[in-house]
Write a protein that binds this DNA or RNA. Structure first.
Length: 432
RNA sequence: GGAGAGAUGGCAGAGUCCGGUUUAAUGCACCUGACUUGAAAUCAGGCGUGGUUUUGCGACCACCGGGGGUUCGAAUCCCUCUCUCUCCGCCA
């Protein structure tokens, strides 16, 4: 959520900036009118409340002195009705305002290139060389089929439906090894503290990170067993529970930066993705991810984004997977982000780099929604922190990249050295 | 699943029966100042969050788990939801 002040004192500039960067149209006239109503109604409501408080107090005092209070009561008779009406009106206006403001995306950092869509993203760097194969390569689905059919989409369909998979045998083991490897790397070498978190979260939590109110259709919602059970939703990323750890909390400045890593499944409805990436493991309703979250002081967040992205890159480097780092343009960035790097891994069968990590600095956008704050040493007012998150990495897609990039002519798959300890020292998965 | 008890400011903890100078006592923590070479101790003062309004000082409003109600007035009474704890039952 943007600072409400931007909609009051800098409405025109804010609208222009949102249009320029996000192609987001703010109804300036409507907002301006609502804001004027809000102001008038709020002043009126509060002065009525003050009046009510004062009269209630004098009633109390008169009564304490044993005086007759019927005159006093008569004089405040219609106050309640007036107040109630004013409150109701104010409430309406504020709800309308809030619902508009809660749906406005973050304003990108000035360093982010302007652009309409992914075609105008900026490649920052490349690491590694896509391998030259001297045989006809298979995609990961066929590679896995050669490995005792360890990736079974028919079984996924049978058990759950389209975009679900069952992994078995050495593929399942590889999948587990990858997440363990990533989590160990980040906790042991990059200073993240490991967390195990709920996979189902409530609506406040989803609002905090920005999934609600606008993106509810991207989630799976779970109806509790009882009629009025709390509405819960499956997390689309561990960013949601991890960042919300500090919702409605005030950290000491010395506690920052806070760094959390968690390995969780992620659930996405993929509404609107029909027909995209239908083959293979690239786009599933359920996938595992090791997520990194960092909470910082405002002045530290841009550096922290570089550091955090570096941590995700380190996974790819250790796994010897060629990738490129892309700075997303304003039009391609997520709703709450002010700056995002995507890491894209080389997928040989597609001869393309595909997203495997997205690292974002959300600025104070999420922190304002969830009132995640910190107090500077000596300062009295708490201040919003900045929140960052990044995949380190998406496990399923890493599995895909590994199978494809390290496939051998005989159908086996070699294992990068860094990962071998997690596979009982095996240097390859053998076909058969 | 059954029975009971609770939820108060960063923490602890009074107030709730019997609604009214309680915009919440007190203690701890924290901040400022005094004393001290410095620190500790002591003393004095300050010290919640959000919001509105104001050039500023300030004034005002809301918040005692969430929501609703009764009332001139609610931390206090009523309804409801959520959560926590204790005991019993069941259980990975």
């Amino acid at each position: 959520m943007l600072d409400a002040k931007l909609f009051r004192s800098e409405l025109e500039q804010t609208a222009a900036r949102l249009k320029q960067t996000r192609n987001y149209s703010l109804d300036v006239a409507q907002l301006d009118q609502l804001e004027q109503q809000r102001k008038a109604l709020q002043v009126r409501t509060e002065s009525l409340q003050a009046e009510r408080n004062a009269s209630a107090k004098s009633v109390g005092q008169a009564k304490a002195r044993g005086e007759d209070i019927s005159d006093l009561l008569a004089s405040v008779n219609d106050l309640g009705d007036q107040l109630e009406a004013a409150k109701a009106e104010l409430n309406d206006v504020q709800e309308t305002l809030h619902s508009i403001i809660a749906g406005v995306p973050n304003i990108p950092d000035s360093g982010v290139p302007l652009g309409a869509d992914e075609n105008e993203n900026q490649e920052i760097s490349r690491w590694g060389q896509p391998r030259q194969f001297d045989f006809v390569i298979k995609d990961h689905v066929d590679v896995a089929q050669g490995l005792q059919n360890g990736m079974n989409f028919d079984q996924g369909v049978k058990l759950a439906g389209a975009r679900f998979v069952v992994l078995q045998g050495q593929i399942a083991r590889l999948h587990r090894a990858l997440s363990q490897f990533m989590l160990d790397l980040h906790t042991e070498q990059h200073g993240y503290s490991e967390a195990y978190v709920p996979y189902l979260v409530n609506q406040d939590t989803l609002f905090g990170t920005g999934q609600l109110p606008k993106f509810g259709e991207d989630l799976f919602h779970v109806q509790g067993a009882t009629e009025n059970a709390t509405a819960l939703s499956l997390i689309p990323t561990a960013e949601v529970p991890l960042t919300n750890l500090w919702r409605d909390e005030i950290a000491d400045e010395a506690q920052l930066p806070l760094q959390y890593a968690a390995h969780t499944p992620c659930f996405r409805s993929e509404a609107g993705s029909h027909g995209r990436d239908t083959r293979g493991l690239i786009r599933q309703h359920q996938f595992d991810k090791v997520e990194l979250v960092c909470l910082t002081r405002p002045e530290d967040s841009m550096n922290a984004l570089e550091t955090l992205t570096g941590h995700a890159e380190r996974v790819l480097q250790l796994l010897e997977l060629p990738y490129r780092k892309v700075l997303l343009c304003t039009g391609d960035m997520g709703f709450g982000s002010c700056k995002t790097y995507d890491l894209e891994v080389w997928i040989p069968s597609q001869e393309k780099y595909r997203e495997i990590s997205s690292c974002s600095n959300m600025g104070d956008f999420q922190a304002r929604r969830m009132q995640a704050r910190f107090r500077r040493k000596g300062a009295n007012k708490p201040e919003l922190m900045h929140t960052l998150n990044g995949s380190g990495l998406a496990v399923g897609r890493t599995l895909v990249a590994l199978l494809e990039n390290f496939q051998q002519a005989d159908g086996s798959v070699s294992i990068p050295a860094a990962l071998q300890p997690y596979l009982a020292g095996k240097a390859q998965l053998s076909a058969g």
